[in-house]
């Protein structure tokens, strides 16, 4: 066990937690899903996000032992576990993003640190800093094409790929966990801007927000 101090961001006491989009949903509203909605947005707030940095081999071994999940070795790789709830994504040659159900991140970080021992790695809990937005529907790709300069054609963006790229006038992590669903991992401080951008971009497709 390394001597690094950890911080439990979800303490036992009942502290109210608000999603990064709480303000936007209040102020900008959430258009209802209708029969003509071709794009559907859904926020998945308060998940556990961990940034893993270090050597691929030690991190891969630790992650296999703790979660049974292997680290994507190729650039832009995105691996899910059997349930589809936990994912690990390549961000850079020495950096990966691990997303788990909310509340699991603290015990997971402790387990990883136990296994990793004194290895030269860094694990940072960024759960409070970012949030995940799902984009689904037949015109979801059209909304992405308006918003990002990255090529989202299925031939260039197969299922199981994730990239960090420019989105609207900021940056976002864009991932494709399944053929019909896209995920945006965005910063909390840009959440309101991107939410309103997506509502505007999806207006012509009758965008609806699932709450």
């Amino acid at each position: 066990m390394s001597d690094i101090r950890q911080f439990q961001t979800h303490p036992e006491v009942d502290v109210a937690t608000e999603s990064p989009l709480a303000y936007s949903l209040q102020r900008s509203g959430a258009p209802a899903i209708t029969s003509t909605s071709q794009v559907i947005l859904r926020e998945r707030p308060c998940l556990g996000h961990l940034i893993l940095r270090g050597g691929a081999i030690v991190l891969d071994e630790a992650l296999r032992e703790v979660l049974g999940l292997s680290l994507p070795s190729q650039p832009h790789g995105l691996n899910h576990d059997a349930s589809g709830e936990r994912s690990v994504q390549w961000l850079a040659p020495d950096e990966w993003l691990l997303i788990v159900p909310g509340g699991e991140e603290f015990s997971l970080e402790s387990q990883l640190r136990d296994v990793l021992g004194d290895s030269h790695v860094s694990i940072v809990n960024v759960s409070g800093g970012q949030t995940v937005i799902d984009i689904e529907g037949e015109m979801a790709r059209a909304v992405l094409m308006k918003s990002s300069h990255y090529d989202v054609h299925p031939s260039a963006f197969p299922v199981g790929k994730g990239v960090t790229t420019g989105f609207a006038k900021t940056s976002a992590i864009l991932r494709r966990p399944s053929a019909s669903r896209w995920e945006l991992v965005i910063r909390r401080s840009f959440a309101d801007y991107l939410y309103r951008w997506l509502l505007d971009a999806g207006e012509e497709y009758g965008i609806g927000v699932e709450r």
Partner: peptide
């Protein structure tokens, strides 16, 4: 620097 991508 690949500022919006891998930041390398």
């Amino acid at each position: 620097v690949h500022a919006l991508g891998c930041r390398k």
